[in-house]
């Protein structure tokens, strides 16, 4: 099987690292693995190359050997699976184009790019028409097994609702405000210092990231929806007093993404001890079913290795029927 890797930042490099270190085991499961090409936003490597050398070059020189654009690699070179690891852009960006080219060519896609939220229906329909698979476990909650569980195991259940904590940065900020009685600004500064929050934190703290993931989850369970459909509120206006008063009645505050009749991302009061009252950068997804009550899926919701692990699992799932 020939693999094309597009996007060679933290996630792409970790994916290749993991793929190479588990190569022997993986080949027993899914057959011979070859890397067709690797491309990042400005360079690429294809033809005769050593993947380990490509990793080393990217890490030392910040680029790959050749100048060929990712799009041209995708159009001209042969591959069976596209592993799309580029950074998510609002409205989908180039990553969606890459996936469309791959699917159109009859290749399967494994992606960590949340851009699929903006073209979910189009991508899925095309994949179905071309009889290929589009796997996106890594887009929501990194390695937390939720997408495949929803698409396969829960496909015979009636899902009443999905609710979850889909953004670790917000959860970190809110749990620190709860613990320390600090203001939003103070905790945000701390989160930036720790590398948990970006310099421009709006993508996280305004609930954009959570809303994009919610759209992916909702579409996965058949709620046709777009990013614009999500009613969204961020967390920057929450006062430290809110945590004090809430605690008197046994509550804390968390940014909750919820999909049922409506798609909503907003801070909610959550009882202490509730599975959504977890602290730190953890992600949690609750699936409310008609038949069997509520299920909780929790774990580290981000990280390059976590994301890469989900993508390896997706890759194997395409070719492995067991």
């Amino acid at each position: 099987m020939k693999i094309a890797i597009v996007g060679f930042g933290n996630v792409g490099q970790s994916f290749l690292d993991m793929l190479l270190s588990k190569k022997e085991f993986l080949e027993k499961r899914i057959g011979k693995i070859e890397i067709s090409f690797i491309a990042d936003s400005k360079s690429s490597v294809s033809g005769d190359f050593d993947p380990l050398e490509a990793l080393r070059m990217k890490r030392t020189k910040g680029r790959l050997r050749d100048d060929k654009k990712a799009k041209n690699c995708l159009k001209e070179l042969e591959f069976d699976v596209l592993v799309e690891c580029s950074t998510t852009k609002i409205n989908g960006g180039e990553a969606v184009e890459h996936m469309l080219i791959a699917i159109e060519k009859g290749a399967n896609v494994v992606t960590s790019n949340k851009g699929i939220a903006f073209y979910f229906d189009e991508l899925m329909k095309l994949a179905e028409r071309k009889n290929v698979k589009l796997m996106y476990e890594a887009t929501v909650g990194a390695a937390i097994p939720i997408i495949r569980v929803l698409r396969t195991y829960f496909s015979t259940f009636t899902i009443k609702k999905i609710a979850g904590i889909l953004n670790g940065t917000c959860n970190y900020i809110l749990s620190r405000m709860e613990e320390e009685g600090l203001s939003y600004e103070q905790v945000l500064a701390e989160a930036k210092e720790l590398g948990i929050a970006e310099t421009d934190p709006s993508y996280d703290v305004d609930g954009i990231d959570a809303a994009i993931k919610l759209v992916i989850l909702a579409n996965t369970i058949g709620i046709r929806s777009k990013f614009e459909d999500v009613k969204r509120k961020g967390i920057s206006w929450i006062t430290p007093e809110a945590f004090k008063i809430a605690a008197e009645k046994g509550y804390t505050i968390r940014l909750i993404a919820e999909a049922s009749k409506e798609l909503i991302v907003e801070p909610r009061l959550v009882k202490f001890g509730h599975p959504l009252a977890l602290k730190g950068t953890i992600n949690t997804i609750l699936v409310y079913t008609e038949e069997a009550g509520t299920f909780s899926f929790a774990g580290r919701g981000a990280g390059k290795y976590e994301t890469a692990a989900a993508m390896i699992s997706d890759l194997v799932a395409i070719y492995d029927d067991r």
Partner: peptide, 12 residues
């Protein structure tokens, strides 16, 4: 005025 609503369902 911003409102924070509770999660209504108990976890079962």
């Amino acid at each position: 005025i911003e409102v924070i609503e509770p999660i209504y369902e108990e976890f079962v």
